[in-house]
Design a protein around this nucleic acid. Structure first.
Lengths: 250, 250
DNA sequence: TTCCCTGCTTGATCTGCATCAAGGCAGATC
DNA sequence: GATCTGCCTTGATGCAGATCAAGCAGGGAA
């Protein structure tokens, strides 16, 4: 059974696929896949490069193949708020709109799989499955955004940091081994302190202080500035302020 | 030309309809409309009543016919964050999920047009137009949520209040006359101070103080606690911190 | 080796909003 | 009319996180 790892757009949960999470199964979708293959192309960006500026004309939609990108909004006076973190298989752009609503920036080296918007829209009208899959993904993103609203509006700085670490730990874990050694998780932060601050609605100084505090309290260990060891994912979760049943999204 | 005002779900912008904004035009959609008519039913709620609790089983999707409802999230210790405001024609619930993710509460008397989830999902697979319309609405909501993330993360209390008033003024205006007397807007707040606070990530005292401050500075006038007069929508917009070109959503 | 330069940490101080507390007002009930 | 109750306002005080300001660590260039 062939897997087309980079046409992430058609990703779905297919019980017959060896990779169930956001994998693409050719035997279910061969038609659409073929058509998608015909209109797709790749673009690469270096870490730090801007993919597109808010307000720019955007004549494509795309999905992330490898690397990490961010969506940010900026106010005239320079205040910045990150509103989305794009990881492999995440989708950018929206059918039916011609200009970008946010700045999209590559925070690591990035490869995107792009589709020109016009043919993509035509394909979408012709193949209902794509619209349904896109709806599903958009609803997930909406849930994540709302979870984030709770964080931004009501959580303390410490809870915000813990929540971000928990999210990264979780997503990282799901990309790699199905389960690392029970309870403990190790990962590299893909964001600078400033980017973390922009995501959490804090200043970079506060981020730094809270990271130090979590380290002092034994919730995390740091090797260098980016390499994080979480000895017990449960103690981290306790710091997030969330229900412990762990229904966290993103 | 017949209008089916309450099957809001199929709402779309039809150039031939007298009401272009989220109206339903029978001649475009007669088939789907007929099927939707067969599975729909109505429910009414009184102001203050809870429509559904987060975590409850939810075997329907629905759209608001009249009145206003809110989506809120609550932390164990009682901190609350509103994550959505549902106005007439807005959609609640999500195909493919069986439990509610948020508390849904009626803030005014409310009438909802409901569809049992199972037949609705079947209908959605059969009629691609519905999924596409739903996708469009969900993308709009996602944009609104992201706009709100900027507000929650980076705006001052005064900017938050001004932004909320601007949003209500705009939505209210679009429901009523196409254009009220150039520049000035009058409306009734559909929310208590506490609800405003939950929406804005503030306390009710801060909301009250900032409302008083805006009044003192002549940005708004108040008659009683709820009736708001905005003498100049432009001066209000200047207080929001947003770009003045006015691309505001929700 | 030295010198940057970028990203990070830590300290001192300030401030915007939360918190605690005390009324005020208008509509409902008796 | 008196009293109650829900909602709102205003004042006094406290504190979490912002702001201002140094200085450090590590990596790359010469």
């Amino acid at each position: 059974m062939a897997l087309h790892q980079d046409s992430h757009l058609l990703a779905h949960d297919c019980a017959d696929c060896p990779i169930r999470h956001r994998a693409v199964c050719a035997h279910c979708e061969s038609d659409e896949l073929t058509k998608l293959e015909q209109i797709k192309y790749y673009r690469s960006y270096q870490a730090g490069q801007t993919v597109i500026w808010s307000g720019d004309r955007m004549d494509f939609v795309a999905s992330v193949v490898t690397g990490i990108a961010t969506l940010t909004q900026t106010m005239e006076d320079g205040r910045r708020q990150m509103v989305g973190l794009l990881l492999p298989s995440d989708f950018v752009g929206r059918p039916g709109r011609s200009t970008a609503a946010y700045d999209v920036t590559a925070t690591t080296d990035l490869v995107m799989c792009c589709f020109r918007k016009k043919p993509f829209e035509e394909l979408m009208s012709a193949t209902p499955h794509i619209a349904q899959r896109l709806l599903e993904m958009t609803l997930d993103e909406l849930d994540a955004a709302r979870e984030w609203m709770l964080l931004l509006g009501r959580k303390t700085a410490r809870e915000k940091i813990a929540s971000l670490l928990a999210i990264i730990a979780r997503r990282d874990a799901s990309l790699k081994s199905p389960r690392s050694s029970r309870g403990s998780v190790i990962f590299d932060l893909p964001l600078t302190r400033e980017e973390m601050a922009d995501y959490l609605g804090l200043t970079l100084e506060t981020v730094s202080r809270q990271m130090s505090a979590l380290k002092k309290d034994g919730v995390i260990e740091l090797e260098g500035k980016r390499h994080v060891i979480v000895p017990s994912i449960n103690s981290l979760m306790e710091e997030t302020g969330d229900d412990t049943d762990g229904g966290f999204l993103v």
